[in-house]
Amino acid sequence: MKKSKSESSPNSTAVTVFLFASLNRLLNEAIERSGRSKKQEATMRIVDGLSIQSDLKFEQLPLAGESSYVGVSLAKTANDELEGLIAKYKSVNGRRITKAQAAAACLYEHLSVYHSISEIGKRYKST
């Protein structure tokens, strides 16, 4: 019997990331440059972004246009960091955002600042 993803990776959390139109465009441009799948690129950039971001800029997201989703799998440490940013956001702004929204904010921030990433911690700024 084939194991489900949750059985094969008990220390990870599945997150469905909301991709609004401009985020989806940025992500598609990044995967064209890197050759990775959308899921791989999104996961790498979210995990890397969590290591350098101290807060979420959810209000700055341009949410207009058609949307889609991408599923990512976050290791326990990355998931804990995302949960910490969500808690901080709630304490500062007085409202809770979902994990999908928080991951989208983290991904958008990373894609907006960094043109490419070769591995976690090795990122290159847009010029």
Results as ranks from 00 to 15, higher is better:
residue 6 S to A: 15
residue 44 M to I: 08
residue 72 V to H: 04
residue 97 I to G: 01
residue 33 R to G: 10
residue 27 L to W: 04
residue 12 S to T: 14
residue 88 K to R: 12
residue 6 S to L: 10
residue 72 V to I: 07
residue 42 A to G: 03
residue 56 L to V: 02
residue 82 L to S: 06
residue 73 S to A: 06
residue 9 S to T: 10
residue 61 L to D: 00
residue 30 A to S: 12
residue 33 R to Y: 04
residue 27 L to M: 05
residue 46 I to S: 02
residue 55 D to R: 15
residue 78 A to S: 09
residue 5 K to T: 12
residue 72 V to L: 13
residue 84 G to W: 04
residue 9 S to Y: 03
residue 46 I to V: 15
residue 33 R to H: 02
residue 34 S to K: 10
residue 80 D to I: 08
residue 112 S to L: 10
residue 116 S to K: 10
residue 37 S to I: 00
residue 69 Y to H: 09
residue 39 K to T: 10
residue 92 V to F: 05
residue 58 F to W: 14
residue 8 S to E: 14
residue 14 A to Q: 09
residue 74 L to S: 07
residue 71 G to H: 05
residue 30 A to T: 07
residue 13 T to A: 14
residue 98 T to H: 03
residue 121 G to K: 00
residue 78 A to L: 06
residue 115 H to K: 13
residue 57 K to V: 03
residue 98 T to I: 04
residue 60 Q to F: 03
residue 55 D to K: 11
residue 25 R to S: 14
residue 82 L to P: 08
residue 74 L to C: 06
residue 5 K to M: 09
residue 22 S to W: 02
residue 19 L to V: 02
residue 3 K to F: 04
residue 5 K to H: 05
residue 30 A to E: 13
residue 2 K to H: 04
residue 69 Y to D: 06
residue 5 K to C: 11
residue 76 K to G: 12
residue 101 Q to F: 02
residue 95 R to E: 03
residue 42 A to H: 02
residue 75 A to G: 15
residue 120 I to D: 05
residue 59 E to I: 07
residue 61 L to F: 01
residue 44 M to G: 10
residue 104 A to F: 02
residue 123 R to L: 01
residue 96 R to H: 15
residue 13 T to N: 12
residue 12 S to I: 01
residue 54 S to H: 01
residue 26 L to I: 01
residue 38 K to D: 00
residue 81 E to S: 12
residue 28 N to L: 13
residue 122 K to V: 11
residue 77 T to K: 13
residue 50 L to V: 03
residue 11 N to A: 07
residue 122 K to N: 13
residue 117 I to G: 09
residue 121 G to D: 08
residue 108 Y to R: 00
residue 30 A to M: 04
residue 80 D to F: 03
residue 66 E to V: 07
residue 46 I to G: 01
residue 100 A to N: 03
residue 11 N to D: 12
residue 54 S to L: 09
residue 106 C to D: 11
residue 33 R to A: 14
residue 69 Y to S: 14
residue 47 V to F: 12
residue 112 S to K: 03
residue 2 K to C: 10
residue 29 E to M: 07
residue 40 Q to V: 05
residue 55 D to C: 07
residue 4 S to V: 05
residue 92 V to W: 01
residue 19 L to I: 02
residue 123 R to P: 00
residue 60 Q to M: 11
residue 92 V to C: 01
residue 63 L to C: 02
residue 11 N to Y: 15
residue 97 I to M: 12
residue 20 F to T: 03
residue 64 A to M: 09
residue 30 A to I: 05
residue 52 I to C: 06
residue 36 R to S: 11
residue 111 L to Y: 00
residue 16 T to H: 10
residue 16 T to W: 07
residue 27 L to Q: 12
residue 7 E to K: 11
residue 75 A to V: 15
residue 93 N to A: 06
residue 45 R to S: 09
residue 44 M to K: 09
residue 57 K to C: 02
residue 26 L to H: 04
residue 59 E to N: 06
residue 25 R to V: 09
residue 63 L to S: 11
residue 48 D to H: 15
residue 122 K to P: 02
residue 63 L to K: 15
residue 34 S to L: 07
residue 22 S to T: 08
residue 116 S to Q: 08
residue 121 G to I: 05
residue 29 E to L: 15
residue 113 V to C: 04
residue 87 A to C: 02
residue 72 V to S: 09
